[in-house]
Amino acid sequence: MQMARPITGSRAGDVVLALLILATIIALAPRLRVYFSVTMVDVSLERVMSDGTREALATPVEFKQVGDGYWPGDAVVSKLRPKIDAYMSSSTLATTAPAGTKFDWTIRWSEDSLKLDHTEHVIWEGR
């Protein structure tokens, strides 16, 4: 069979060019992974009265499916803390609460597991 004329003018040049493109394809291959990993995050909120009584509050909508499963586990708290601060600053929860009331935000998360095996608390005090 007659072979085609090389693109670069020489077969060695073509092979080098092909290998360079192949190397790029392989080097960028990890970026093509989809839906193979997820970070589960669960946020719950409790009001803690001055006598220690705890009352569960409904989790605000913006804290459901937080991060859409994409946040890396070690960044969950650092990403959530500013959101919690912003929420508490703008809502009437803290300002209308009796003196001594605290708000306990519980952040539980896990990577690629249904067991939410990491927990962190963010405490907000009423004003």
Partner: peptide, 10 residues
């Protein structure tokens, strides 16, 4: 487990 978690989170 990952599929179940993704169906809940994504």
């Amino acid at each position: 487990a990952t599929l179940i978690a993704m169906s809940k989170m994504r």
